[in-house]
Structure formats: structure tokens, C-alpha cells
């Protein structure tokens, strides 16, 4: 019930970006793959649906970093993962601290670890690292950073028209950008 209601609500705004995930394997029900500017609209939808923000984090990938938003609900079991992509050399996404106050710290932490700028963040100073830290520990060395297709789950073959195993998920935003590079 909660899942279908949430799905309808997200679908009405992001009809192309939403996809269902296999909960038993990945631990979340819905995945929304967005352009970086749209993370605020997703946060607004999730707030209206009564979700709380679990965390904000990122993965260092080439050429685009992936910024991840985990949402969960307190009534029942429904987890939604939002993903946005931003160029690795100058990562920037808008802040959602205006909607979820808790995002303030999560975004500061992600800024510490990855150097991602959260546009319009009220107080983007180091949280866990020293105030004079000039490094971002979770940014990988150039030789070690991988591409999106290297970490994406191989699609199950039974699905009609599914890409061959090992190929990246066709993502509206990130996938295409990844292929261009």
C-alpha cells in the first residue's frame, strides 16, 4: 500500500526517472535517477509523503560522481534511493537542507569526504575533518576510480530485452553521460 502510494506520487513528477528495485537483493524498493538540479523536487515529494532522510552520501566515479539520498518511512517498510550525477572535476548539487534539516550535517559530511559543493547550503564548513583540511579522503586516486558500469549489478537475463550481463543499467541521466565519456 505504502509502496504503491509512494510510487504513484514520485511517478507523477518523475515518470521517466523512477524504477522499481528488487528489494530482496538490494534492500530498497524504489530507485530514482535524477539530474542534479532535481534533487530538491524529489526531497519535497518525499517530505510530502512522510518519509525521513536516512542519509546523504556519494560515490566517486568517473566522469560523474554519484550523490545518493536514502529515504525511509516510519509507517511500514518502504525505502527509496535517489541518485544524482555531477561532474567529478567540479561537483555541485543543490542543498536540500531547507526541506530536511537533518541534511545539513549529512551534506557537510559529504562535502568533507568528497569535496562536493552543496549550492545554497547555510553553513558548509568541515564537520568531521579539521577546519583547515585541504583534502577529501574518499576521492579516489585517478588510477583507482571506476566507471558507473563497473559497479552496477548485472541485469537478470529473464527480463525481456535486458542488456547482457555486465553492461551498465541504462540510466536516464548518469548512464548516458557515462557512455559519452
Amino acid at each position: 500500500m505504502l509502496l504503491s502510494k509512494t510510487k504513484t506520487a514520485i511517478e507523477s513528477i518523475f515518470p521517466l526517472e523512477i524504477k522499481e528495485a528488487d528489494y530482496a537483493r538490494v534492500g530498497y524498493h524504489l530507485e530514482v535517477i535524477l539530474d542534479a538540479e532535481k534533487v530538491v523536487s524529489l526531497a519535497k515529494v518525499m517530505m510530502a509523503q512522510g518519509f525521513y532522510l536516512e542519509d546523504v552520501t556519494a560515490i566517486d566515479l568517473n566522469p560523474d560522481m554519484e550523490v545518493i539520498y536514502h529515504y525511509a518511512h516510519t509507517e511500514g517498510c518502504c525505502r527509496v534511493t535517489g541518485r544524482a550525477y555531477t561532474p567529478r572535476h567540479a561537483p555541485e548539487v543543490p542543498t536540500i537542507a531547507g526541506i530536511y534539516s537533518g541534511a545539513n550535517w549529512h551534506e557537510r559530511e559529504t562535502h568533507d569526504f568528497f569535496g562536493i559543493t552543496f549550492k545554497d547550503h547555510p553553513y558548509l564548513v568541515p564537520l568531521l575533518l579539521p577546519e583547515d583540511a585541504d583534502f577529501h579522503p574518499l576521492v579516489k586516486e585517478d588510477g583507482k576510480v571506476k566507471q558507473l558500469k563497473d559497479i552496477k549489478r548485472a541485469e537478470v537475463k529473464e527480463q525481456a530485452g535486458a542488456p547482457a550481463a555486465g553492461e551498465g543499467k541504462p540510466a536516464p541521466a548518469g548512464g548516458e553521460k557515462g557512455e559519452k565519456a
Partner: peptide, 9 residues
């Protein structure tokens, strides 16, 4: 583990 991601709480 195979390629992919997973969340567990």
C-alpha cells in the same frame, strides 16, 4: 560479492 549495491538496516 558480485557487482552491485545493497542497503541493510
Amino acid at each position: 560479492p558480485p557487482k552491485g549495491d545493497c542497503y541493510f538496516a
